[in-house]
Amino acid sequence: MGKDKRVLLNLLRQRNDSPEDQAAGWVAYLYSGETTEEGRSGFSRWLGEAEVHVHAYRHADLIWRNLSLIEGEKWTTRPIRNKSVGHWNSAVRKWKKRRTDAWPTRCRVLAAAGAIAATLLLMVGIWRMDTIPPVERQLYASVIGQVKIVILPDGSQATLRPESTIVAQFSKNLRRIELTKGGAYFEVVHDARRPFFVRAALTQVRVVGTHFDVTRWREGVAISVTHGIVNVERLPSGVGKPVGRESPWQVRLAAGQQAFTKPDGRIGVPSHFDPLTESSWQTGRLNFRDTPLNRVVQEINRYREVKVRIDGEALGEMRVTASMDGQETSKLLSALEATRPLTVEHSPNGLVLHPEAR
C-alpha cells in the first residue's frame, strides 16, 4: 500500500473523533476511488463495532449522495454564527488541519475527498437533532412496486412498502410518525429522552429504540416486532392523546410477537409470527402462508397498476400459501384461477375475482 493511503487509513482509525466525524471520513475514503482491500476490511470492522456507526454512516452517505459533485468544483466551508453548532465548526477545522499537515500535496483525489468530508461534517452537525429547532411535518412516499428506504432526521430508518406514505415530525423533544397509507418497517435509534411514536388510524405504537413493522389493512392495523419491545395503545377518536393507563385497550409486544387492531382501535390477542415471511417484501418477494385471499389481494395491489378486487366476503376468506417476486403478481392470479374455485374477470375498472359457479 502506498504512503498516501496509509496516512488516510491512520486518520480514519483515530477513535477520539465522534461517530459522525468517523463516518464522514469513511464516506470520503470509499468515494475517493483509491480504496484497498485492507481499507474496505477496516470499514467493515468499524461498521460492525456499534449500531451508532451504522446510523452515522447511513446519514453521512445520504448527504454525500445528495450533493452535486461536479468535477473541478471547489468546496469550501464557512463559519456558522449559530453558537449551538459551534462544536461542529471546531470539528471541521480539526479535520482540515489534519488533512493539510498529513496528506502529501500530490494526493489530489484524497485531498478533494477530505474537503468534501469537511463539508459533510458541517452538514451532519447542522442536521443533528439536538442543535435545531422543531421542524415542520415532512412527507415521505413510495410509488407502485417501489420499496423505499428513508433515513429520518434522527438517523432512524423507515423502509416503506410500495404505495405507502408517512408523515414525520421531529424536533429536540419529539419523534413522531403518522402512517397515512400502506406500511413501513422501522429501525429506531435508541433515545430514552425522546420516545418514538407511530400512529396509524386509531392505533399508536410507542418505542424507545427497536425494530418493528406497522401496516394498514382494510381490516385494521398490524404491528409486528422483530427486535426489542413496543407498546401498542388505542387513540380515542378525534383526540391526539392516548387513553390513560386505566384503559384495557393497550398491550406490550416483545420480539417475535404481532398484534392486529380493529378499525375502532381494539387490540387483538398477541401471537407469534414468522419474521422471514413477514419481512420478505423488503427484498422484493411476497411470501404468503395460510393468508386470507383478501389480505393477499391488498398486498399484490401495491405492485400493480391494474388493481384486483374480490366479489364476495366468503371468497376473501379463502386461505392462500404462495411465494413470488413482487413483479410477478399476474402469475399468482393465473395459478389461483387454475387451481382454486374462482374465476378472473377483466373489467374496465381492473380485475375481479368471482367465486366459481357451482
Rank of each mutant, 00 (worst) to 15 (best):
W103H: 06
I132T: 11
K97W: 09
P153S: 00
R58Q: 01
R137A: 12
T100N: 14
V167C: 09
H53K: 09
Y57E: 11
P79S: 03
L152Y: 02
S156M: 12
V92R: 04
S156G: 10
L110K: 06
A56N: 03
K148Y: 10
A168S: 12
V54N: 02
R176N: 09
Q146A: 08
G145M: 05
W64Y: 15
I144A: 14
K148S: 11
T159N: 03
K181A: 00
A111H: 04
W75M: 01
A117H: 13
M129D: 14
A117N: 06
R106F: 11
V109R: 09
L120Y: 01
D130A: 09
A118D: 06
W88M: 10
L110N: 03
G155M: 01
T76R: 08
M129S: 03
T105C: 00
R98D: 09
L62V: 12
E73N: 05
T131A: 03
I132N: 03
V124T: 13
D130S: 01
I116Q: 10
Q157K: 09
P153R: 07
A117L: 09
A112Q: 10
T77D: 01
G155S: 06
M129E: 15
S68R: 11
K181D: 08
W88C: 00
G72Y: 01
R137E: 15
V150S: 05
S171Q: 02
N82D: 15
H55V: 02
R99Y: 07
R128L: 12
W75D: 04
R93Q: 11
C107F: 13
P104D: 05
W64G: 02
D154P: 08
P133T: 06
S84L: 12
T180F: 02
D130K: 03
G86V: 11
V143C: 08
P134K: 00
T100L: 15
N173K: 11
R81V: 13
G86M: 08
R161N: 15
L152P: 01
T76E: 10
S142K: 07
V143L: 14
T131K: 05
